[in-house]
Design a protein around this nucleic acid. Structure first.
Lengths: 248, 248
DNA sequence: CTTGTCAACTGGTCATACCAATCTACTCGC
DNA sequence: GCGAGTAGATTGGTATGACCAGTTGACAAG
């Protein structure tokens, strides 16, 4: 049965934004270099100045360009000025492949934050948090056969856990990581199945949080995340090997 | 001698953006609630529609609102949709005081990421990274008397260290944390002096990185960051105590 | 009660004009 | 010759008004 996906609209300013962002991220527009004048961009892109200006505002908000009245807009170095919300657009390279460095970065970050979030949730989250987690674990058990559903549940689980840590910064970072993950989750389902398929570790962490056992929660979370990380890294190594072979 | 600060210009769309963002972050506009129509906002704010639209684009980019053609724009729950770049605007409450929860969150995050970044830098950064760090340490020794300069150097130090970790996600998170810190750095100078004043730990970490001693780099970084964290937490407790006393 | 239609919203795009800051090149005075 | 000052060109910022394109909801027809 064909699955109908909702079509995603794209306004002109969206298109302009994505085009310029892509050029900046691919290095085609170097940091410090001047952007064409707004009126020149309008003409080159065949759109109205409003569309260009709205796109520039978004680029500015994302920390990719700096705009000064009277002067010319300039490209910023996104490695110095952008925030985590740039991660989704860095994940895939121009030719549609994963950027291995970005994947590794994400795995490392969740390995650093996840266990600490679990520790804090055990310290602060209390029974209320554990109860929400248990509900998700129950759902995982119900949909044990459906890998995609397990993925959704695992994400929801971590969302509740991070909420239980009562750490805004962790929550915002989680949002960025989640947005990145979400865009490729079907591609990663198999590689991460060792982390996703088994609901027992999730139940164990929830129990540790209920018991306010911070050390146990942290250790369990670390072990759980390690499962997925090694799976993804192995898959990545296979792909890289295959690509190397191809290019011979 | 009075220090002249460069005045920061604010375009109309900047003003509109900040006003709406403030209302959303303070909870005056609830998640899910409808925003006034663009034309209504124009009239209410006394600006033209372009200014409103550009501000809405920025809010959308920041994950604070969702805009659909034909429908009404709605406020999103920033706790679920915003990224780390929101941190600076969450740090200070409406009455200009620190939000203690946000401060704690930031301290926890840097305590989680900093040591791991040091570990990775020791694994990957190599002598090149250590050399850059040493240069900063040298500058710290030169400006040992100037606390503000020490702060700048410490920030630069961590920037190079994070670069040495070769982790994009860490770098982007660092940018967001840095932007947040930068906005209040003079206020925090005293509370963090135990971390900033002494250049020896920085030199030690650089040495561990040069030796590719990941465990040592991690442990030293953890200890260093702990200094500042406890200082800030103590200052925060004092302020909270004073505020509690005031409100009696 | 369901279904189709239409009118009144909403945001999206466009064209044009003018204001304000900046940059550049030239001129003037030393 | 060289620096300061000035005028014009260039850039982004704001304003107005019109029209296009989706969404919504009321309402009439079945």
């Amino acid at each position: 049965m064909p699955v109908l996906q909702p079509v995603q609209r794209q306004s002109l300013s969206d298109a302009v934004f994505e085009q310029l962002r892509g050029q900046i991220l691919r290095g085609e527009r170097r940091p410090g270099s001047a952007l064409p004048a707004e009126r020149a961009l309008c003409e080159a892109l065949g759109v109205n100045r409003s569309a260009v200006r709205e796109a520039l505002r978004r680029l500015e908000q994302a920390g990719l360009v700096v705009v000064r009245q009277g002067g010319t807009s300039r490209v910023r170095d996104f490695r110095e000025s952008a925030s985590l919300d740039l991660l989704p657009s860095l994940l895939l390279t121009a030719d549609g492949h994963f950027d291995a460095r970005v994947v590794r970065s994400i795995l490392e970050m969740r390995s650093a934050l996840g266990p600490d979030a679990a520790r804090l949730a055990a310290t602060r989250g209390g029974a209320a948090c554990a109860q929400r987690l248990d509900a998700v674990v129950e759902a995982m058990r119900t949909d044990a056969a459906d890998l995609a559903a397990q993925q959704q549940h695992a994400t929801a689980y971590w969302g509740h856990l991070v909420d239980g840590s009562e750490n805004v910064a962790y929550r915002l970072a989680f949002n960025a990581l989640h947005a990145t993950y979400d865009r490729v989750r079907t591609l990663l389902a198999r590689a991460m199945q060792a982390e996703i398929r088994d609901s027992a570790p999730y139940a164990a962490i929830a129990d540790a949080i209920r018991c306010a056992d911070a050390d146990r929660a942290e250790a369990l979370a670390r072990a759980l995340l390690e499962r997925g990380a090694s799976g993804v890294l192995a898959a990545l190594a296979r792909v890289e090997g295959a690509t190397a072979q191809e290019s011979r």
